[in-house]
Simulated scan of single mutants.
Amino acid sequence: MSRIATPAIETATGASAEVFTQIKKSIGKVPNLYATMGMLQPAALKAMLQADATLAAGSLSKQDVEVIKLTVSSIGGCTYCVAAHSLIAKLTGLSPESLKHIRHGEPTGDARHDALIAFVKQIAQTHGELSDEAFAAIKAAGYTDAQLVEISLAIAVITFTNTFNRINDTTVDFPAVD
Rank of each mutant, 00 (worst) to 15 (best):
residue 1 M to D: 13
residue 2 S to R: 09
residue 2 S to G: 12
residue 3 R to G: 14
residue 4 I to H: 10
residue 4 I to L: 15
residue 5 A to F: 00
residue 6 T to G: 02
residue 7 P to H: 09
residue 7 P to A: 14
residue 8 A to L: 08
residue 12 A to N: 04
residue 14 G to C: 04
residue 19 V to T: 11
residue 19 V to W: 01
residue 19 V to E: 05
residue 19 V to R: 02
residue 21 T to D: 15
residue 22 Q to C: 00
residue 26 S to F: 04
residue 27 I to V: 13
residue 29 K to R: 15
residue 30 V to K: 00
residue 32 N to Y: 06
residue 37 M to H: 00
residue 39 M to G: 15
residue 39 M to E: 13
residue 39 M to L: 06
residue 42 P to M: 02
residue 43 A to G: 07
residue 44 A to S: 15
residue 46 K to Q: 12
residue 49 L to S: 02
residue 50 Q to E: 10
residue 51 A to T: 09
residue 53 A to Y: 00
residue 54 T to M: 08
residue 55 L to M: 04
residue 55 L to D: 04
residue 59 S to H: 14
residue 60 L to E: 06
residue 63 Q to G: 12
residue 64 D to N: 12
residue 67 V to R: 02
residue 68 I to K: 02
residue 69 K to V: 03
residue 69 K to L: 03
residue 74 S to N: 08
residue 75 I to V: 14
residue 76 G to C: 06
residue 76 G to A: 11
residue 80 Y to Q: 04
residue 80 Y to P: 02
residue 81 C to V: 13
residue 82 V to E: 04
residue 84 A to L: 10
residue 85 H to K: 07
residue 85 H to I: 09
residue 86 S to Q: 05
residue 88 I to F: 05
residue 88 I to M: 03
residue 90 K to C: 00
residue 91 L to W: 01
residue 97 E to N: 04
residue 99 L to E: 02
residue 100 K to R: 11
residue 100 K to M: 04
residue 102 I to Q: 05
residue 103 R to N: 04
residue 105 G to I: 09
residue 107 P to G: 10
residue 108 T to N: 09
residue 109 G to C: 08
residue 110 D to V: 15
residue 110 D to F: 01
residue 112 R to Y: 01
residue 114 D to W: 07
residue 115 A to C: 12
residue 117 I to C: 06
residue 117 I to N: 01
residue 117 I to E: 04
residue 117 I to M: 15
residue 119 F to Q: 03
residue 120 V to C: 07
residue 120 V to Y: 07
residue 121 K to T: 14
residue 122 Q to A: 10
residue 125 Q to W: 02
residue 125 Q to G: 09
residue 125 Q to N: 11
residue 129 E to I: 11
residue 129 E to G: 11
residue 130 L to T: 13
residue 131 S to E: 10
residue 133 E to G: 09
residue 134 A to K: 02
residue 134 A to E: 08
residue 135 F to A: 13
residue 135 F to N: 08
residue 139 K to W: 02
residue 140 A to P: 07
residue 143 Y to M: 11
residue 144 T to C: 07
residue 145 D to I: 12
residue 145 D to E: 15
residue 145 D to C: 00
residue 147 Q to M: 13
residue 150 E to S: 07
residue 153 L to C: 01
residue 154 A to Y: 00
residue 155 I to L: 14
residue 157 V to S: 05
residue 161 T to E: 05
residue 161 T to P: 01
residue 162 N to R: 06
residue 162 N to V: 08
residue 163 T to C: 08
residue 164 F to D: 00
residue 165 N to M: 09
residue 168 N to S: 13
residue 168 N to C: 09
residue 169 D to G: 11
residue 171 T to H: 09
residue 171 T to G: 08
residue 173 D to Q: 12
residue 176 A to H: 05
